[in-house]
Computed example of a mutant assay.
Amino acid sequence: MLAPMATGVGQVWLTILEASRRSGLSEPTLRYYEQIGLVGPVPRDPSSGHRRYDAATMDVLDSLGCLRSAGLRVEDLRKYLDLLARGDAAAAEQRDLFDHHADRLEAEIERLRLRLEYLRLKARLWDARDRGDTGAAQRLVPRLLALVDRF
């Protein structure tokens, strides 16, 4: 469990290491997100100058960490936050943002499936060659070529 630094009345602050662990974003990414305005400015500890993340900032970072792990790009994260600030008035745009990304992800999964099938067929081809089964190897070649055309 993280050991947050408590300062002030009821306020809990996390160090950059703790914020990184909780959000799943690296420390350099946290600094970068602050630099480009996705979060921040992040308050600093007056005595050390180290970043201290409050609960509201952590809510944003937790969301960004989930979205980033789902493959959203920085420009999509920025758009998400801009739309989020508009609330329900931007619901249709939020839906479109996520639908568009889901479509992109689905296409990427299909490309990965093709690559996986290609690798499995290549393994079968070399297995056939290893066993000296030239007939099986020859039957696999057209399937491999057909897959290559789909890349």
Rank of each mutant, 00 (worst) to 15 (best):
M1Q: 09
M1C: 06
M5S: 10
M5C: 04
T7E: 11
T7K: 04
V9G: 11
V9T: 12
G10W: 05
Q11K: 08
Q11R: 08
V12L: 05
V12F: 01
W13A: 00
T15C: 08
I16P: 02
L17H: 07
A19D: 04
A19P: 09
R22T: 01
S23T: 11
S23V: 02
G24V: 03
L25A: 00
S26R: 09
T29E: 08
L30N: 01
R31F: 06
R31I: 13
Y32N: 07
Y32T: 05
Y32K: 07
Y32W: 10
I36Q: 07
L38R: 12
P41S: 14
V42Y: 10
V42K: 09
R44M: 13
R44F: 15
D45P: 02
P46R: 10
S47F: 12
S47Y: 11
S48W: 10
H50S: 13
H50A: 08
R52A: 12
T57H: 00
T57C: 05
D59F: 02
L61N: 00
D62Q: 11
S63I: 03
S63T: 08
S63E: 07
S63N: 11
S63C: 07
L64Q: 00
G65Y: 01
A70K: 01
R73W: 03
E75A: 09
E75Y: 10
D76M: 12
K79V: 13
D82T: 05
L84A: 04
L84P: 00
A85L: 12
R86A: 09
D88M: 12
A89T: 11
A90L: 04
A91H: 07
A91M: 13
A92K: 13
E93L: 12
Q94T: 15
R95M: 11
H101Q: 15
H101T: 08
H101V: 14
A102L: 06
D103W: 11
R104I: 07
R104F: 03
L105A: 14
E106S: 14
E106F: 09
R111P: 02
L112H: 15
L114Q: 14
E117K: 06
R120K: 13
L121P: 05
L121C: 08
L121Q: 12
L121V: 14
R124A: 10
R124Q: 12
R124S: 05
R124V: 00
W126C: 11
A128N: 08
R129D: 07
D130H: 06
G132T: 03
D133A: 13
G135P: 01
R139D: 14
L140H: 09
L140Q: 10
V141G: 00
V141K: 04
P142R: 01
P142I: 03
L145P: 00
A146H: 00
D149W: 06
